[in-house]
Design a protein around this nucleic acid. Structure first.
Lengths: 181, 181
DNA sequence: GATCGCATGTAACACGTTACATGATTGT
DNA sequence: ACAATCATGTAACGTGTTACATGCGATC
């Protein structure tokens, strides 16, 4: 399916950037739903150049540090557009190790299970707080200027989705803990 | 991390079964959160036998069809228990190709984006219906007998989580569509 | 006798992570 | 000078999917 390929094309469509920048982008809100390490990004960039979907110019930073600024070619833009419009089937299994443990919960003592769930609840709450802070920053910067055509719209949608995903998980954890009483 | 290893140990703890049965288990509710193909399961079973965590007896089905019934060894039970109690960190990126597209939404025409979201909404609603049907069946069979210690408890928790995950996704899709107006 | 489900396996390839490896720039 | 960050790459390994390959059992 080569999803990383499209992730890179999408990021480069937003802005000319280096492999390092792409890796950094995966550490933000986008990383909640897709990410890759630099060891996967650099070979993929090479491949995309070979395929004629992207190109780069070498830029000198400071005295002699060479960095490669990548951008989309016309062919790359077309590929990206084709993928964006594709209507793909929902994939079944979003792997979740905690839910796998949950499936086997009857093999545990009740107190052990409660500890497992409480711990997960704490982690999820902390994550929710962090995501909330990022959203507050985004709203402070752009306020009500986030509309469809603005480039922040995607960022905003992804953040709200991540936040509600955590809220849903937390609610379910709380109700499950109650159910265990 | 070898999560498949623990998935198999957990399934075998519930019941002696064949590789085929394990593959079938991943097609049920459990498959919403973890799954593997038979081509991955059979080698893993072999490995677990070599490691002394599981063992098997050969059973003849009908005239001459040999099948291998696997079960946990004492060492396997201990490994499973150790994993179940481990308090692991929440992993960041649950990969979701649709959310990746969402991040790049500003590169689309509004009408294209609406089509993408509407289509995803339809798929998610159909999936929710299906999960609801499975839950209804489970409740019809066990009713209010699903309590902590019953083996159906894990199944029940996983199903309710899957259902609420879909509901949350659907709500977010609907609000995002409204936002695009 | 044909089709579908049960049952087991391997091979090739694609995707992803950890570790190895190097060096420049910026701010303190 | 030191540390943190910027910047790029490869190698080895682990995980996961698709395709190849085979044969029995049950039902129509």
């Amino acid at each position: 399916m080569r999803v990383l390929k499209y992730a890179i094309l999408g990021l480069l469509e937003q802005e000319k950037q280096t492999g390092y920048d792409i890796a950094a982008a995966f550490k933000g809100a986008l990383g909640q739903f897709w990410s890759a390490k630099h060891s996967q990004i650099y070979p993929e960039l090479k491949k995309l150049v070979a395929e004629g979907l992207i190109e780069f110019e070498t830029v000198i930073q400071g005295e002699k540090l060479e960095k490669k600024l990548y951008s989309l070619t016309v062919a790359g833009e077309a590929e990206l557009k084709e993928w964006m419009q594709r209507l793909e089937a929902v994939d079944v299994s979003h792997k979740d190790e905690f839910m796998l443990k949950t499936f086997f919960i009857s093999s545990m003592e009740k107190e052990e299970a409660k500890e497992l769930f409480s711990n997960q609840l704490d982690s999820r709450k902390r994550k929710l707080d962090e995501l909330g802070r990022i959203l507050t920053e985004l709203e402070a910067e752009f306020g009500s200027n986030i509309v469809f055509s603005s480039p922040e719209f995607g960022h905003y949608l992804v953040l709200t989705r991540a936040i509600e995903r955590e809220k849903g998980y937390i609610q379910w954890l709380e109700r499950s803990l109650q159910f265990m009483e």
